[in-house]
Simulated scan of single mutants.
Amino acid sequence: MSKPQDTVPALRKAVRILDLVKASSRPPLAADITRQLDLPRSTAHGLLAVMVELGLLEKTVAQGYRLGTRLLGWAGGATEKRDLVSEFYHELESNPDHDAFTITLTMLEGAEVVYLACRNSATVLGASFRVGMRLPAIFTATGNAMLAGMTDAQFDEWLALHPVSLWPKPLTPNGICSVTTLVREIAEIRERGYAVDDEQIHDGLWCFGSVVRDHAGQVVAGVGVSLPQTELGRYDMQALGDRAVRLARAVSFRLGYREVGGQQVA
């Protein structure tokens, strides 16, 4: 069998350069990189120039190369996401009071929420959640909670980037389908402190959502507490919303967020 053609050789060479720079005890010179990786001189210099331009590498005063700040930003983002998911699961493990509910953790990406973590209850919901799943933010409790957590300016910017003409068709008859309805929903969420998905994602499925904040007070995710409509009668609606708020605050606390009397403290 013939070997598959490598369609991105430059990318592989760039990764080899990054690995070499990271492993070197001192910032290697262009000549060192060329020799150790057995690269044509023109290829090495071309790649190094582009990698410096993109912030993947930085050139030292001695003309050596070290890892660039752009990589540090990527690494930090990946670490923060892992920490977020880890602390979410740690909180669930330490609090069995949530076992009767399906609990989800999502992040807002554009007009969608992405599911980062979930723990399904034994109760049949009629819908299943899985890591990596995406849903329109305006139909979800966590998505609307995160939209409500924006400043007015940020929310206006989000609306400008995602006009109603681009909104998906509602998944159920209860789905939000106008800016007026969404703005009213956002106002209600801000007043009561949590969001409610009243069968907007799936008939017979309710979810209560609240926001997770990082150490700087920025909204980084949303937690959802879901249960079937048939189980609603066993609980007080306000108590379900408060449950989502408490869980979100507990995860936020684990991430370093502190507040007293509703105000962030250093």
Results as ranks from 00 to 15, higher is better:
Q218F: 03
L57K: 14
A117K: 01
E157F: 00
A239F: 08
P9R: 14
L20S: 07
T79H: 09
T181C: 13
V50W: 06
R184P: 01
D203R: 12
C118P: 00
L166I: 06
L182I: 08
L56I: 12
A153Q: 10
L37I: 03
Q229G: 13
T60K: 03
G46R: 14
A153K: 10
L67Y: 01
A14H: 02
E91C: 15
G224W: 02
S226Q: 04
S24K: 08
V85H: 04
S165I: 09
G233I: 01
A221V: 12
V220H: 06
R213P: 05
Q229F: 00
V131K: 03
M107K: 13
A221K: 13
M51I: 13
A117E: 01
E53C: 04
L67A: 08
V21N: 01
G143D: 05
V211Y: 00
G64H: 03
M1L: 11
A221R: 11
S42G: 11
M107G: 12
E185P: 00
T43V: 15
V114K: 12
P170V: 03
T79L: 14
G241Q: 01
A117L: 01
T230F: 06
C118H: 12
R41Y: 07
R41M: 11
I186N: 09
L227N: 02
G77L: 07
I103W: 04
N95H: 14
H215S: 15
E199F: 02
A78V: 13
